[in-house]
Amino acid sequence: MTEFEPDILTFCCNWCSYAGADLAGVSRLQYPTNSRIIRVMCSSRIEPIHILEAFKEGTDGILVTGCHIGDCHYIEGNVHTDERMKEMVDALEHLGLGQRLHLEWVSAAEGKKFQETITDFVEKIRALGPNPLKHKGVEE
């Protein structure tokens, strides 16, 4: 049996965490390649329905990143993200997927933090095993 390689979805906001990911890249910081990055203008763009759909389609873990509180380009978008993701984790706990969503603030200067966050999260999900919905939710 081949070893389980988690499929991770990472949301990055345009202004901080995407630039943080960029910095990690240009600084040649190595991190696992399990993650696909989706850039959104603000982390508050990510709706519950996006998270749920992604899990339904078989993603093993979702990492949401954004600017630190107080740094949001849209002043307080990330405050809403914070609130919403807490609710989301709670909802996912009811579904038995609580561990699979993580929120982290990464600024444009924190390439290192981005690298560490992804690495830790991938390892955490690897230990958890595949999303139980993996082969059920995907429609042919």
Partner: peptide, 11 residues
Amino acid sequence: LISDLMADLDE
């Protein structure tokens, strides 16, 4: 969607 997922998640 939440209930859809519930139907497929044993936990």
